[in-house]
Simulated assay, not measured.
Amino acid sequence: MLSPIQYFLCVALLSGVACSTLLTGSARGADQYRVYVGTYTRGSDSKGIYQLLLDSKTGKLTHVDVTENVVNPSFLAIHPNQKYLYAVNEITDFEGGNSGAISAFSIDSANGKLTFLNQKDSRGGSPCHLVVDRTGKVLLVANYSSGTVCSFLLEEDGPLTGLKSISRHLGSSVNPQRQQSPHAHSINLSPDNTRAVVADLGIDKLVVYFFDPQEGSLIPNGFREIKMAPGAGPRHFAFHPSGKWGYVINELDLTVTAMDYNQKTGELDIIQNISTVPAGTKRKGNSTAQVLVHPSGKFLYGSNRGPNTIAMYRIDQKTGKLTSLGYQPTGGAIPRNFNIDPSGTFLLAANQDSNNVVVFKIDQKTGLLKPTGHEITVPKPVCIQFLPVSATP
């Protein structure tokens, strides 16, 4: 994770290569990574948020701890200062109402244990994604079932304070089962921390907001929303480290859409749509989930649920367009989420229905994934976040 100094250098340089080098260089000093795994607890054997330890040389995972009595902590975010962790509680009945919640925890620097700080109403049903802004002062949340996005201020010592802004999406799209109403599925901040991109599966759009980190507010950008193909179902979004391009993975039509990103205006222009599965694969019963750009900016990865694979792509460094590198089986069922360690060495796939997290090594030249033989059992894993443990001098 970038230190504040490294972050501001990246913004000043506006260079994906420079940012990647800073991130990779610092992360490679880590001997181990704490791996926090968000899970579904309702209707499963999961007890809450699991803490694992990843050996940065071998890729071996070991169990360390579990923070219990956290309901459906399906997505996690770590504060830039690495002292706090935030989790959505993906429910619709918080305190007897129709909303979900967000929980804040402090992280013990010695052992990684989580201590509960406080909890707030997420101001919408089924919160499914959240992110802390680069200043560490604001938490942004996407609520799936209500189609709302919110911002909350954070205290300096970690707890959530009051709601700062809320926006409700409107509309629908062509899929009668999944798109009768808005479903905000993810919220991501631009590299310069000035705009938030929300992928809304229910209305087949990306909605771009101005973000004011001083006020903590989300403000509609004012220009046209970016429309995906009817029935595409945009789910998760990722910026390229250079800030030149953005990529959205579409859950319902099994595609990735590549876009040019205008850093001055915040506009996104579609340049390519590419499948996440081989030709002839049926859409029915299958879906996509996560999308991530490798820290080097050279490769992109997306997960397929049903086929149970990671789609791999090379990114053209001049145009941002994608070339398929093939498909790597995840070693389990329904890879709802995966993440890449900060050094870009390993990819960890969270297989929700087979209750396992599987480790792959990333070939730095080709971008291909190679099974390490390491995996670990975690009940209903649905989110992975990394935290460096120690650094060699």
Rank of each mutant, 00 (worst) to 15 (best):
K380H: 13
G367T: 07
I107K: 06
K164R: 14
R305Y: 12
T319G: 10
S20F: 09
T281N: 03
L140I: 06
P80E: 08
G332V: 00
S26W: 08
V64S: 07
P4W: 04
T21S: 06
D65M: 02
L201H: 06
G373D: 13
S146E: 12
H169E: 10
N337E: 14
I362G: 12
H240D: 14
N111P: 05
P335M: 06
P393F: 02
R314L: 11
D157W: 07
L201W: 10
G25C: 09
P379D: 11
I203E: 05
G97A: 11
Q51P: 08
N308G: 05
V389L: 13
R123E: 15
V70P: 03
T21G: 01
A184R: 00
T377E: 15
D45E: 15
R134G: 01
N193Q: 09
F237K: 03
P220L: 01
R134I: 00
K282D: 13
D55W: 07
M1H: 09
Y301W: 13
P191L: 04
S151N: 08
G243T: 04
N273R: 13
Y313K: 05
T161Q: 14
Q82A: 10
V358D: 10
E225R: 09
N72L: 08
L154Y: 08
K298D: 15
S126G: 01
N304T: 01
A77K: 00
G96W: 08
Y7K: 04
Q82L: 14
Q263A: 13
P381I: 06
H294R: 00
V357I: 15
L268P: 00
N355W: 04
D121V: 00
W245I: 03
G280M: 02
V64M: 10
V88P: 10
G332W: 09
K83E: 14
T319S: 15
P220A: 00
H183C: 07
S343R: 12
V66L: 09
A12D: 11
K137D: 14
K361R: 15
L292R: 14
N273K: 14
V359R: 04
A184P: 04
T115C: 02
Q82F: 01
D363E: 07
K205P: 02
M259L: 14
Q290Y: 04
N351H: 06
E68M: 08
D253L: 02
V277M: 12
